[in-house]
Design a binder for these strands. Structure first.
Lengths: 142, 142
DNA sequence: GTACGACTTCGAGTGCGCTCGAAGTCAACA
DNA sequence: TGTTGACTTCGAGCGCACTCGAAGTCGTAC
């Protein structure tokens, strides 16, 4: 896989991919005659890193994690990596709790609006809270 | 409630509170001899706005929502507010799904690390979700 | 009557996470 | 041989959401 293909697969740009490598967010990718070759291992790790990032783990912590990985599987490295992940997991559980609460509140408000005017219920394309799969604006794009 | 008290209650600064008002993230707070007086209604709405913001709703959308509220309860305003909330709710459900997935992955990795060395289980100080402070907190303030 | 806290406007600065472009080099493929 | 695509370093710029400070005014309370 070339960098262009990796970019396509991850939804990042080649710029960003190189940038991530440069700042140590991912390990240096192996080269063949100077060009980066992305294999399964690289891709899987990048996906993992993107998950961390998408869930709000600060770059610094991800960098720390990657640094520890490079240190190898010493007990110390493993313990510290574990700690980082445990801390992030705790953070995610908090996030989820807050998210659940917010969803409840919003659903209440939606119901309220729906009941205010029979006329004025949210537009059908988007009306049911169960219809949770619509990614974004239902009126653009058909 | 003065602005200082409101700041304390929300965890924001007085600066930020005025800033939010200025950019239309919250309605103008009623004044008594020029000074803002925060009542229950204001506080509750601010908390709601903070929930929206904490769950990643862009300022612009919150501003739009507040603008619509100010328009009053016309069918159009209500429908549009409903739509905004429904869209955000959908977004939150996606977020939650991704969050759940990430939690599972991280827990797997934690278990893996735990099993690698009996020695190297995550340190107790940090092991319990109850003891959870986020890794390098993105929002300052406490 | 003065201290305190709030008010206003203004503008600059911060930190994060990209994002882009320029300029020049190099290797593989048709 | 020439067109690609990738490589490097460098530095500027951007959008978001604050964050801070300065300067000067005003009202209330001890």
């Amino acid at each position: 896989m070339t960098i262009a293909e990796a970019a396509l697969a991850t939804g990042l740009t080649t710029h960003t991919l190189r940038y991530y490598e440069q700042i140590g967010l991912i390990d240096p990718v192996p080269r063949r005659s100077g060009q980066r070759v992305y294999g399964d291992i690289e891709m899987r790790f990048i996906q993992f890193v993107l998950k961390l990032r998408a869930t709000g783990m600060p770059m610094r912590d991800i960098q720390a994690y990657v640094r520890l990985r490079r240190e190898g599987d010493t007990p110390d490295s493993i313990r510290q990596r574990g700690d980082l992940l445990v801390r992030h997991a705790a953070h995610l559980r908090e996030q989820r709790a807050s998210l659940d609460e917010t969803i409840v509140r919003i659903d209440e408000k939606i119901a309220l609006y729906g009941s205010m005017y029979a006329d004025a219920t949210p537009s059908p394309a988007v009306a049911s809270p169960a219809t949770a799969s619509a990614p974004s604006n239902p009126r653009k794009h058909a």
